[in-house]
Amino acid sequence: MILAVAGGKGGVGKTTVAYNLAAALDAVVIDADLGMADLPGGRGPDLHDVLAGRADPTETVRTGPVDVVPCGRTLAGARACDLSALTDAVAALEREHGIVVLDCPAGRRADAGVPLAVADACLLVVSPRAFALADAIRTRELARELDAGLVGCAVNRVAEEPPTDAVADALGAPAAVVPADPRVGRSVAAERPVVDAAPESDAASAMRELAGRVPR
């Protein structure tokens, strides 16, 4: 199962949702944002090396509370990437780990489209603000063109009562509310997914709810 976590805009919390969802799914999460890596990096080969044909995908997995395939942070590395190599790389990781979560970049360029095309299904992260929804709808269209079925959407960082029904209607998929919780915000940098750090929290149960929607 390859799940793409996408969203129209940058900064809506795709990486945070991808990381915490991977924890709930016991999956490996790949930082597929070639130009703006967000997941923890580290030494050793990364996705840039894999897409440049310099490393085997399985040797890039960094084990931790959530297994991560980090992405390089250099411009030269991003330029050297051959996106057409992503399919085989992700397939190799899927064989090894069962479930793969792809943290996708924003936008409608090839770097956002190829992970969606590679994925079996996708999950959209939406900010609870009205203007963010239009971008999410565009990304939903892109995912539809590329045959990545939408399993659900996460309305992220919700502080007040969110228009969940409106979002679910607009995107045509069930929406789960991820409340604004500082433990979620810290989870990626601290490498403490919220399902482990605060299993009783609303955010953790939102992640488990989203994970339950992912077909396996």
Partner: peptide, 24 residues
């Protein structure tokens, strides 16, 4: 297959240009 879907995405979408200000 997923491979040809990825090829289609590469062909039909705008080219990926890494944002220099972000990575570099």
């Amino acid at each position: 297959t997923a491979g040809s879907a990825a090829a289609g995405a590469l062909r039909d979408l705008d080219e990926f240009r890494p944002p220099r200000t972000a990575v570099d």
